[in-house]
Design a binder for these strands. Structure first.
Length: 495
DNA sequence: CTATGGCACGGATT
DNA sequence: AATCCGTGCCATAG
């Protein structure tokens, strides 16, 4: 009964031609942002394609009277937590229009060519409503001058001077930006970013009393891991200090633009952390962990993409010399629409299964990751594994806790054991050797080779046992968190 | 002698 | 077919 998804007979999924198949494949591997670009360029060049403002279900093209999933096409609703509700969200406007004056555009265009474009767009979209239209160009200017860490390299005073406006106006805009996601973006320094994050955090949860002091006055000490001086500064025990530092490390991020890559940021230097907006957003229906997931597949356009019916009509009256061309355009548009539907369809089914299988991981974190392979999902869905590969690649998923992770993480075979090792070592009464860790894992039912433990340990940047301190300084391996230089990968760890 | 890192091989995965 | 990953063997550091 699990398989009886109504989605299978979603209308308008006609038999596939080879052309159709080929294009579906290529669309599948695009993420939301890339797809949006593709659609825009196609809209620009193909008159047969039309984007209607009216919202329609991207699968079946039925008009949607209200926001939310299409009653026909969304996967079955039920109150069982195991049954996620998956739908394509047509509501998100992903269009990359800044709406700035022509006069400003050259300043921005040359900047937006860089990798910061997606982040800028993403943030701007969030603050658009609260932003005074007058201040748009200021926001755009700030956002396009962020560095890769999401920090502002030029001073607000310069901006004020540049636009001949009062500094307070710039600061107001910046304030708005800082409180958008990723929180702290647009700060002048890691310190400021941390402070903003702390402020925001304070509204929803309890923060250690001294965290504020540490960041404000002890930031230098924090950078250099001088915990002893730090504890003196706030007048707390070393242990308490460590606790607070842990809190800071776990909940705050000095480089906002990187926050989204969470713990995956080991990413090679070849790929300068490019920011992406999520392609899929997972939420809980209510906030209770009992309730089912609500999974939104983000569609890059609002409204509905379709073949322009007027164009189709006009075809019969087309001038003879144009008729071939028009016909081609029509077919092309038709194909694209179908392929996008197909893509949405596949993504929905994929996420449906994925969220079901990885429910615990999504809710409780890395330690609960179910080691699954793309192949196994492919079999379950009855599609080729390469389809899954493409669908998974390049995609970013937003979890209920707000973290963004690459979708590939759902298929990480070793993550579960890696986090267990981390846990074991965090709680160890004395430094365990790799062999001992193997034994502990064996007791828990995970059989891995000693060599593998060593590799995982290296991946997590945990020092070998004889270099780990006893009790007092168990946080020693957590250094390098705040130092930007340590971007090296595990492999080379020379003596 | 023990614990760990390097290299490399083979099987699984994509 | 190409790539990634776990593992075994051996050298070396402590």
């Amino acid at each position: 009964m699990l398989q009886s998804l109504t989605i299978h007979q979603a209308p308008s999924l006609k038999p596939l031609t080879t052309a159709h198949l080929a294009q579906t494949m290529s669309l599948l591997e695009l993420n939301c942002f890339e797809l949006s670009q593709k659609i825009q360029s196609e809209l620009a060049r193909n008159p047969a394609l039309e984007l209607r403002e009216e919202r329609c279900c991207p699968i079946c093209n039925r008009p949607l009277s209200v926001d939310g999933p299409c009653p026909q096409c969304s996967l079955p609703k039920s109150n069982l937590p195991e049954e996620p509700i998956v739908f394509v969200s047509p509501s998100t406007d992903f269009r990359i229009n800044y709406d700035y004056d022509e006069s400003e555009s050259d300043t921005i265009d040359e900047r937006t060519a860089s990798s910061s474009e997606d982040l800028a767009t993403y943030v701007l979209r969030q603050i658009m409503l609260e932003l005074d239209p007058e201040d748009r160009h200021i926001a755009a200017f700030i956002l396009t001058n962020l560095n890769d860490d999401g920090l502002l390299d030029i001073s607000p005073a310069e901006i004020a001077h540049y636009y001949h406006i009062p500094l307070t106006r710039v600061e107001n805009v910046r304030h708005l930006i800082q409180h958008a996601d990723p929180i702290g973006v647009g700060s002048k320094s890691p310190q400021e970013a941390l402070l903003v994050q702390l402020e925001v955090l304070k509204e929803t949860m309890q923060v250690p009393t001294h965290a504020f002091t540490i960041i404000n006055d002890g930031i230098e000490l924090l950078y250099h891991h001088q915990f002893d001086k730090l504890s003196r500064l706030i007048g707390a025990s070393l242990q308490e200090t460590h606790k607070i530092v842990d809190f800071i490390k776990n909940n705050l991020n000095p480089f906002p633009a990187r926050s989204h890559w969470g713990d995956i940021h080991i990413g090679e230097d070849s790929k300068p952390t490019t920011y992406s907006a999520p392609d899929v957003i997972i939420n809980l229906l209510n906030d209770s962990i009992e309730s089912p997931f609500v999974v939104e597949i983000i569609s890059p356009f609002s409204g509905s993409l379709q073949v322009n019916p007027l164009f189709r009509q006009a075809l019969c009256q087309a001038p003879p010399e144009k008729i071939e061309e028009w016909k081609l355009d029509l077919e092309r548009a038709d194909l694209l629409v179908k392929c996008i539907q197909q893509r949405a369809h596949t993504m929905m089914r994929l996420m449906y299964h994925l969220t079901k299988l990885q429910r615990n991981f999504i809710l409780f974190g890395d330690g609960y990751l179910n080691p699954i392979t793309r192949a196994s999902i492919a079999e379950e869905l009855g599609v080729h594994e390469s389809t899954i590969s493409r669908a998974v690649s390049n995609k970013v998923v937003q979890l209920p806790n707000g973290h963004l992770i690459p979708m590939e993480k759902f298929f990480d075979r070793s993550l579960q054991i890696r986090t267990m090792i981390k846990q074991i070592i965090d709680q160890e009464p004395f430094p365990y050797s790799d062999n001992e860790i193997v034994d502990i894992l064996k007791q828990k039912g995970f059989i891995v080779a000693r060599r593998t433990v060593a590799k995982y340990r290296a991946m997590e940047k945990i020092l070998p046992s004889h270099l780990r301190q006893k009790r007092t300084c168990k946080h020693s391996h957590e250094k390098t968190i705040f130092s930007r230089s340590s971007k090296q990968v595990s492999t080379t760890h020379s003596e």
